[in-house]
Amino acid sequence: MNDYRSRFRHFAAVECAFFSMILAAAPVNAALAENGVAPLNYFLHSYGPAATPTMYLGWIFVALLAVIFVIIALLLTGAVFRKRSAEDPCTIGREDEGMPWIYIGTGVSACILFALAIYALVTLNVIAKPTRAPALTLTVTGYDWWWKIEYEDDDPTRRFVTANEIHIPVGVPVLVKLKSADVIHAFWVPMLAGKTQMIPGLNNQQWLQADAEGIYRGQCTQYCGVQHAHMGFEVVAQNPAEFQKWQDAQRKSAAMVSTIDINAGKKLFLDRCSGCHTIRGTEAVGAHAPDLTHLKSRRLIAAGLLTNTSEHLVKWITHAQDIKPGARMPSMMLTATEISALSAFLSTLN
């Protein structure tokens, strides 16, 4: 699997040229130079049929509207700098002149708007539904402030739950059912599709498809409380074989090895964490927080906020309220021994 940055590199030239052409704005080029690419930059990057038509639409709209803006700005500048003859500052123009301006200006605007409206509606129709039946259905439920992900299957034993990291096979449409456990959130993976609100009591859905392998960043975009800013996730698009492997691994319960260290950590987890978290294969069946059965398989923790290293994990467990103030995860008071035991246990959750 490629890291997304390398995949985006060849776009750099295109995007610089494009931005300087249409926007002539220094900040963007600076921003891109600074970081390579913005992971949510849907305007220049799209990797699937649910997003690409919209991206082209965006380019055409921006280009056309920029031309219109320049024309109007030139007219206005020309009008403003038409000099008044100095000898008679008080002459008053006649009222009945000038109507052709309105007729022509409004007429041309109306035609352009009509064309744009049709183009937008056609595009809407194109992206509304996938051309073939979805190959995979999953349910994403928004929680304050993380994402629960359920993989559906006709066979109930093959269903499984994970959190904050969606894996999809590349090149096929995926149906995403959207729910909310508390307030309104919005599901958005900008490089793959537009956003849809997750409204409690309603069953919304959208589809997406990734045509290239890679990691696509997602983000909640409906204000949902203090940690709205830190409600991210990732979509990992894999080739079918890798995806199948991942799925099989996720279906399994946690493999429990038994050493002294790990048993102490497990006990601690069951005492302190299992009220909210689930680890399949243990007595931990809490349903208020992410399923941690395969915690170590994820790239990020804390809903996209931190990379999944053991230091970050310890920091998150002990200082969650400093890292993500207001989150439902408390800062756990643990001794150094407890920390190492818990770490040892969590590191077995592959």
Binding site: T54, L116, Y119, A120, G194
Partner: peptide, 11 residues
Amino acid sequence: VMTAAVPLDFQ
């Protein structure tokens, strides 16, 4: 006008 285009507004 850009936000009025439904697909674009999804973004």
